[in-house]
Design a protein around this nucleic acid. Sequence first.
DNA 1: AAAAGAATGTAGCTATGGCTACATTGATGC
DNA 2: GCATCAATGTAGCCATAGCTACATTCTTTT
Lengths: 155, 155
Amino acid sequence: MAMNAAMPRKVTTRKPRPTSVAEAEEFRQTREDHASETAEDYAEAIADLTDAVGEARVVDLAKRLGVTHVTVNRTIARLQRDGIVTSQPYRAIFLTDKGRRVASASKQRHEIVVAFLRSLGVPDHVARIDAEGMEHHVSPETLAAFKAALAARNR
Amino acid sequence: MAMNAAMPRKVTTRKPRPTSVAEAEEFRQTREDHASETAEDYAEAIADLTDAVGEARVVDLAKRLGVTHVTVNRTIARLQRDGIVTSQPYRAIFLTDKGRRVASASKQRHEIVVAFLRSLGVPDHVARIDAEGMEHHVSPETLAAFKAALAARNR
DNA sequence: AAAAGAATGTAGCTATGGCTACATTGATGC
DNA sequence: GCATCAATGTAGCCATAGCTACATTCTTTT
């Protein structure tokens, strides 16, 4: 690119750059959480459907998660690859032991987060929406704090 | 696919399918939030850097967000497309008015969430990590509830 | 048993969000 | 002024996550 005289050039020396990368770790953690969000949502949905109607089918998951059956299909393939579910063509989807553990932990956390938000006076519908987004980023420490706050309120 | 006799066939009629899609809305909302997360994180980072050293450069953002400069570059192009920032090749990045609004709202929410978690006894470092993930999913209602809880504690 | 309809699968598109490797430009030092 | 190094830009790869359109298979109905 040719030098353009009309383009105001910066003459002064560059300001010293902050070298701290402390915050970077927080963003990294958040990105990592995102990777497991899908697995947790699917595992929980599959567990619920299995409890309710005995099996989880692609259409049911699609309806429940608000995506098309195509997306479900591809995600299930990944979850199978990762040992969360078992599935065979044209058959229902089932959780592995690992999948059941994921679902159970996720469900527990979900319920605590919803209960906690509701205890703060957040309307039920809003609490459910917020919990769905927040829950995957709630560490064990924060979950414990939520539990403790709930217990204190009921004491 | 040929019928495989060894494959246990389901003989009974399919169970009735649950038709409720109530939960789907929650997942949709969460996916929507994800779309704005990046914009908020970048806007906040750019605002902070601009305050601290007068300008935000690609390297600084990369360091701070924990990604490579390539990722920053591409994201900045998108943010420019979306009217959040202005940028010219080889120059610093600046927020538009819209970008400043995003940054300010995001920063405020971030600080409230961190303060709230800390007030529950969550260790500072953990509070920061969790807040980073959670904040983008905190609705105005929940944020108000957090604020109220903080105010009550300081009363 | 054949037709119709529902469910599932597949091909291929878009967008985001990471990355490495390499090219170019800008800033600094000699 | 030129060489060097840092910063920025570009090409192109991969994975996730959504979609429409179409093909196949299964279930139900007639």
